[in-house]
Design a protein around this nucleic acid. Sequence first.
RNA 1: GGCGGUGUAGCUCAGUUGGCUAGAGCAAGCGACUCAUAUUCGCUAGGUCCGGGGUUCGAAUCCCUGCACCGCCA
Length: 508
Amino acid sequence: MKPTFYVTTPIYYVNDVPHIGHAYTTVAADVLARYKRLMGYDVYFLTGSDEHGQKVEKAAITAGETPLELADRVVKRYQALWERLGISHSDFIRTTQERHKKGVSEIFSNILAKGDIYLGEYEDWYCTPCETFWTETQLIEGRCPDCNRPVEKLKEESYFFRMSKYQEQLLAHIEAHPDFIQPKSKRNEIVSFIKEGLRDLSVSRTTFTWGIPVPGNDRHIIYVWFDALTNYISALGYPDETGNYSRYWPVDVHLIGKDILRFHAVYWPTFLMAAGLPLPEKVFAHGWWTVEGQKMSKSLQNVVEPNMLIDKYGVDVVRYFLLREVPFGLDGDFSHTALIQRMNSDLANDIGNLLSRSTAMAVKYFEGILPEPSEMIDIDLALKTKTGEMIAIVDKFIDELAFSKALQAIWDVISAGNKYIDDSAPWTLAKDPANRGRLATVMHTLLESQRITHCVLSAFLPTTAGKALASLGYAEEISKEKLVWGGLKAGTVITKVEALFPRYEGKE
RNA sequence: GGCGGUGUAGCUCAGUUGGCUAGAGCAAGCGACUCAUAUUCGCUAGGUCCGGGGUUCGAAUCCCUGCACCGCCA
């Protein structure tokens, strides 16, 4: 039986417009999923949308439709973008689906029955026009931070989750599992947050209706995070603990943005503990993108729209840039200049041109029919070895979610390929018929190295890798077993195709 | 205010437990080749490793202190 691998993105808020941050998490998850599939894993890759809450309810009223109509309409923005980005998710969960509501109701009832959810009173400052509760510390000079109007102290009946009870258990878990929260700096933040003391968490609201009602008490709607986080198991069929749930849970990694780390590293694990379910293996919080050095915001109108980037540069350029430019886990800056730099240097000049010059020579010297190689000498063997070693290096970096390092390792082989051509100088060999055998070996070595490279790269740049492998006359389905040397057979038809990546000469 | 982090070549950053003349990529300059998307390959960086003090035979790497920036919490 294949080993399993379960990876998730957050479910994105349906009312938001997809931006580069959403694309980032999802592309990273996709690369991970594709890579693990390639390596023989039985992969479940989940993404989806969070469709409940007051904002959706309000937006729907404004638009003159029901909340579900609104959600149905706008969820397509995400689904269409994932389609364009080549996202290979196994499932797309919407929190308005019956399977999800069932899962949430069940886990809520379960914890309620165990006594870790109880009915109490929630007292805080309430802004009536905004219909929002604020804590004392959120207020700005005693007024609503959103609209600056006066607030009043209000008591609301609310269900509470006994999160405080799980403080020590959670700390012990984090202690025992050093990789549970990553990167490390974020883990430390969470640890100090927990040590300051966990309070019980209000997990229901009575101020709006668009959501999942508390079982047995319709006046209460289950709080957003309790609802949303449960998607990770409701999508697997929970409360049915057979089938996909037993197959994939606990999740191997939740990929998230750093803004929602607390919910994933504190709330979610304690919910699971209370429900008696296993905890995630890993929660990885990646960084934020600034744009041209500035924080992304609607008011600055600098939100980077992924569709625009794809139109302008192409899918794989965007995928490559996002994962190569910045170490996963750190913040990074998006700029057109930097993207074009990467595109020209790494993609057009290095990898694109390497394939171009290689296939051109195969066509020119051997009419595009891959010749039988003769004995390999040192420089051939060096490239072969380097190509083989790259696989283990990439594997290690992928496990660490160090996507940029994995790509660097792949590019080391690309560079070695370019250098190999200069060192072996096929154009010189071609001048003397006596070197025919040697030339054949050089061409074979060169193309085989790229065949393996593009097989690995298919996890990152599926479209490009497909084009490159087609150019190499390689049509087999890629798998771990195919990553060993010798996949290209003599007689294979090599064709020079259009450039994998254009050079971008414009200013922006 | 509490806790934590960062500050290394023009830019982005690597630099395990302190130890050869402090490294990589990109940018820039020079040279070489010509198969290729004027692409590739080679060579070239003399950077107070934020400032100051200390420990040590020896510190970018440890300790103290100052400055700057950032994150989490309050």
